[in-house]
Amino acid sequence: MIISVASGKGGTGKTLVATSLALSLKDTESVRLLDCDVEEPNDHVFMKPVITGSEPVYIMAPAVDEDKCTFCGKCAEVCAYKAIAVIKDHVLTFPQLCHGCGACSYLCPEKAITEEGREIGVVERGHAEGIDFIHGMLTVGEAMAPPVIRKVKEHAGDSGTVIIDVPPGTSCPVVEAVKGSDFCLLVTEPTPFGLNDLVLAVETVRELGIPCGVVLNRTGVGDTKTEAYCAKENIPILLTIPLDMEIARLYSRGVPLIKGLPQWKDSFLGLYERVKELTDGRNPDTER
């Protein structure tokens, strides 16, 4: 089963939930933790994994052989991203704009374009306390996170429980990370910002046809509108975590909640049982 942990709003506790859920399950399940927040990955701060392998992530970008090129302009015409331009007898490429679709090289009548890999990030894998750990890191200054996320997800495997830590927001990196999950946990806080972004996140996972439930973090301040929204939309609240300075301080030191306060383990096991019940009966025909 693949469980993704997403949020809409940043800083609501995705990493806290993903790491504590993984650690709660490790004694009874085969667990794999995938950190797909490749712009700002943080799971490693808490898991302190032993990294055993790493591979660069490349995006293909065109390389033009000007000896073969007749400057016909076909490549520029077919590029939807304006990543290649023909000016008189020169071809200019803009690798940062290239999405690596491959149209220019395939359609070049002279076969003058080959594709060269350009490194935009790295995927590292390893283990921490019996948990398989994989994360991706986008290179600083690079714009496109989805290819790095795709590469991280290639390590999802075919069995066991996979927990995916998703970047904040609702746009392409989120879709890339959440897609293919059997269930999505949406972590939020009971504030107007938390609710506004939860609504957007719910719309996104519904668009993808993935069932979801809410983890409500830092309860005690804020308001009750998030609970009212969840009741109205029939979204189960699977776990609540109070605003607690001790929890916040553990987090600040990079200590997973269930390691600092082991009494929370049962709550996370209960959360997992609820997720299993909620996905039971579905025959998840999901691509891995």
């Binding site: 712009e39 700002e40 986008l138 600083v140 200054g141 690079e142 496109m144 996170a145 970047p167 990196p173």
Partner: peptide, 10 residues
Amino acid sequence: GPPGIGCPVI
């Protein structure tokens, strides 16, 4: 600004 370091931040 948006969170992260990717396309919308740049």
